[in-house]
Computed example of a mutant assay.
Amino acid sequence: MNLYRSARAVAGASGDDVIDWQSAADAAKAVTDPGSLELEPGEREAYARDVRDAREAVRTVADVEFDVPDTVEIQNRHHWIDANIATFERVMGTLENQFQTGAFPGVARTVNTGTMTVLLAFLGRNVLGQYDPLLLAENPEESHALYFVRPNILNAADKLDVDADRFRRWIAFHEVTHAAEFGAAPWLSDHLEARMEDGIAALSDGSFDRNAFRDLDAAMTVVEGYAELLMDHAFDGEYEDLRRKLDARRQGRGPLQKLFRRLLGLGLKERQYQRGKHFFETVVTGHGLETATLVWEGPEMLPTQDELDDPTLWLQRIDR
């Protein structure tokens, strides 16, 4: 790590945008140990086998045809930062007019670039795996992607005192379940993009589209909850100990790390997981997995915020 190189990259932020994205990426990598990609014999094939096995198991459980992304990468932390900088730029780009204020735009650019540096560095050191649907991509034909951040997986397995191979396999199954969701619902990417663009457009105009963000939160709650449902049925091993240890590790983080997680919305993701898990457990207990899968028939089948808290309302609406 090189704090001086990071600070120099942020201080040298330039260009016409509110964030110098290349400087943010360079600065984040300067303070982030990339980690090793020296794979053990057979390790690359083990990743591939985990993804293939997850695909077949999830296909069987969910009874839906889908495929894993063409892009499946074993990354170090720097690779992850490079892979995600374009996504951040696409999402934040429409907010430029909102933040391009003040008599000293260069100072604002430096502050914004520094903030993005901290965000990228924190995530780069903590993300284990990622299914990336490449929302808002300029090329609609651009394929989705699947990333595994090897140094973070090994580091987490060591700290949690769990078998690294089993932990890696669990991560692979979880990310492949997300690929299954987007495969089962071809409309899902467009729906998320539309609600995201509505919300960001309102922010750009200085207002807040509460409905857009509520709809986006509801959809992501379903995505997280259904992924856990498939994991319960598809994963070929015990994993409650892994979930329990990960939850305990999050609770044990220091005040600064907890603040970062709140600022980055990671606490929201955990809330979405809990609400989604409760919703689908209730539906499946009374009506089976086939009924739960109806959420992917179209946007109108997604539960509302009230229905997420009371699944019987959703079941009544769809006449089940």
Score class of each variant (00 low, 15 high):
Leu146Val: 00
Gly298Arg: 09
Ser23His: 11
Pro303Asp: 07
Arg250His: 14
Ile171Ala: 03
Gly15Ser: 12
Ala227Gln: 00
Val295Asn: 01
Glu38Trp: 15
Asn2Trp: 08
Leu128Tyr: 04
Val127Leu: 11
Asp198Ala: 10
Gln274Asp: 11
Asp16Ile: 15
Tyr273Gln: 09
Leu289Cys: 05
Arg166Pro: 07
Trp170Ala: 04
Pro105Lys: 02
Ala9Thr: 13
Ala157Ile: 03
Leu134Lys: 12
Gly225Glu: 03
Leu264Val: 11
Glu224Ser: 00
Asp165Asn: 06
Gln22Ile: 12
Ala164Asp: 07
Ala157Asp: 01
Leu315Gln: 05
Tyr239Gly: 10
Ala121Met: 01
Leu242Gln: 06
His79Val: 09
Lys258Val: 04
Arg166Ile: 08
Gln305Arg: 13
Leu134Phe: 12
Leu289Ile: 08
Ser23Pro: 09
Arg90Val: 04
Ile19Asn: 06
Gly102Lys: 04
Leu256Gly: 11
Ser204Arg: 02
Ala248Gly: 14
Asp247Ser: 13
Asn97Tyr: 15
His78Glu: 13
Val149Trp: 12
Ser23Gln: 12
Lys245Phe: 05
Gly286Gln: 05
Val162Arg: 01
Gly93Pro: 08
Ile318Ser: 00
Ala86Ile: 14
Asp241Lys: 03
Pro69Cys: 02
Glu224Met: 02
Gly206Tyr: 09
Pro255Asn: 05
Ala137His: 13
Gly288Asp: 04
Arg109His: 03
Asp67His: 09
Tyr47Val: 11
Asp215Gly: 03
Glu40His: 08
Ala248Phe: 11
Ala57Pro: 04
Gln272Lys: 11
Asp163Arg: 14
Asp17Thr: 08
Asp17Met: 11
Gly102Tyr: 05
Pro133Met: 07
Lys258Met: 01
Glu297Leu: 12
Val91Pro: 03
His178Pro: 04
Glu181Phe: 03
Leu128Thr: 01
Val107Ala: 08
Glu175Ala: 01
Gly265Val: 03
Asp215Trp: 01
His233Ala: 15
Ala234Arg: 00
Ile171Leu: 07
Gly276Cys: 03
Gly276His: 01
Phe167Gly: 02
Gly265Tyr: 04
Ala7Leu: 15
Asp232Ser: 13
Gly206Ile: 10
Ala13Asn: 02
Leu188Trp: 03
Glu43Gly: 03
Ile85Arg: 07
Val162Ala: 02
Val283Cys: 06
Arg52Met: 06
His79Phe: 10
Ile81His: 02
Arg77Tyr: 04
Val295Leu: 05
Ala24Cys: 10
Asp20Val: 10
Leu242Pro: 06
Asp247Phe: 07
Ser36Leu: 14
Thr177Cys: 09
Asp17Ser: 11
Asp236Ala: 13
Tyr47Ala: 13
Glu181Arg: 10
Ala156Met: 15
Ala121Ile: 01
Gly12Tyr: 15
Pro255Gln: 08
Gly124Thr: 00
Glu141Met: 06
Asn84Arg: 10
Ala9Arg: 12
Gly254Met: 00
Leu37Pro: 13
His287Ala: 05
Phe182Met: 10
Val295Met: 03
Pro105Ala: 02
Arg262Ile: 08
Leu268Thr: 14
Arg262Phe: 08
Phe173Pro: 01
Val149Thr: 14
Asn112Phe: 02
Phe279Ala: 05
Met231Val: 07
Gln272Asn: 12
Met301Ser: 09
Arg244Tyr: 05
Phe99Arg: 10
Gly183Val: 01
Leu216Lys: 09
Glu38Ser: 15
Thr282Phe: 15
His191Asn: 07
Asp205Tyr: 00
Val118Pro: 05
